[in-house]
Amino acid sequence: MIKGLHWYKIAAILLLLVTSWFGLMGDVPRLVVLNETIRNLYFHVPMWFGMVVILGASAVHSIKYLSKPDPVSDIKAEEMAKTGLLFGILGLVTGAIWAQFTWGEWWSSDPKQNTSAIALLIYLAYLVLRGSFREEQQRARVAAVYNIFAFASLIPLLFILPRLAEDSLHPGNGGNPGFGGYDLDANMRMVFYPAVLGWILLGFWITELRVRLKKIQLP
């Protein structure tokens, strides 16, 4: 067994191979407007799942840090926030491309687009906050407090507000039928769920590499 090669990394490779093959070559239902862009479901939607899960894990590590100040928890919280940010940016970009081909505009002031952009602002601010301290323990503690607070305000942002708005273009909002309704057939589900899991595992893999690097650099 190669050192550092955990089961979840193998799982991530396999799941993403499945996703890429069936995502590009598999059979998808032919739908009006969506056409072939429906394949983006395997790449765009998992970015959001990945972002929320990884940012949640980051908040958990911040809670851990506050209950027991261990520099490794702080490193994990920071690196997970960065990976979450990466997923958020990718989600926004893949979403904008999808929106251009289905809704006709890169940015159509959709509530979910806006709230996601706000989420990115919050975590960019978190990184700026981290940069404004010289003393490491103080930085870790204050950043942990902001991280938990930010995640707590992200929850209403991502889940409650888009549902209240009537004019969302996303499926499942504002009278639009959800993807679960009839668009997503059984074949697509077989690819979609592995894709979500695969991308999330890849996110944790990226984080793990960076955490290991940071651990070596610890004084």
Binding site: L121, I122, L124, V128, L129, S153, P156, L157, I160
Partner: peptide, 10 residues
């Protein structure tokens, strides 16, 4: 400003 504006937005 940068820390409070995004968390005030909800």
């Amino acid at each position: 400003a940068i820390l409070s504006f995004p968390v005030l937005l909800p």
